[in-house]
Amino acid sequence: MTEASSITSVLSTALRMKMDTPFHIDFDWWEHQRREYVFYMRSHLCEEHQYKFVSEEDDDDQMLDWVDSRTGQVCRLDYLHYTLRTHCAIHPEFLTKRASLVDVIFRLFIANGNQPLTVTELALRIGREGQEKTIFRTLADESLSKGLRPVQSGSGTNV
């Protein structure tokens, strides 16, 4: 992406967003980039599962039903995502491990079941109060966003 088009992309996204806009991981966005999805999701696995997934030839395509412990709502997740959410994400270091801003936010959404959060809430949860504008700018830049996007009105499921 050229610099000009990158700026245009940032501006057009920012125009649609406000500081109180809730964000989440848009898994529809990832649908179109399956290879990158697998690679990126694997990078968040814990050591035990990094090894396990590398040793397996391919990811299991079977979808699993993940039940939200608060609401009883069911999300259909692939094996990789299910493992991340039910195993790796409950390790204390999942959120505290040194990582880029985008990666930390992505992990937070994995850990909270992709419950939408505003920039202010994100800053608070990841211990970066006062850096709301940086977070906002990062999320506004679609080239960096890793599918972290504003919640579209009317979207009912989190996944």
Binding site: V67, V74, G156
Partner: peptide, 10 residues
């Protein structure tokens, strides 16, 4: 659901 969304529950 009455907010025009379809959800799944256990």
């Amino acid at each position: 659901c009455d907010d025009n969304c379809t959800r799944e529950f256990a």
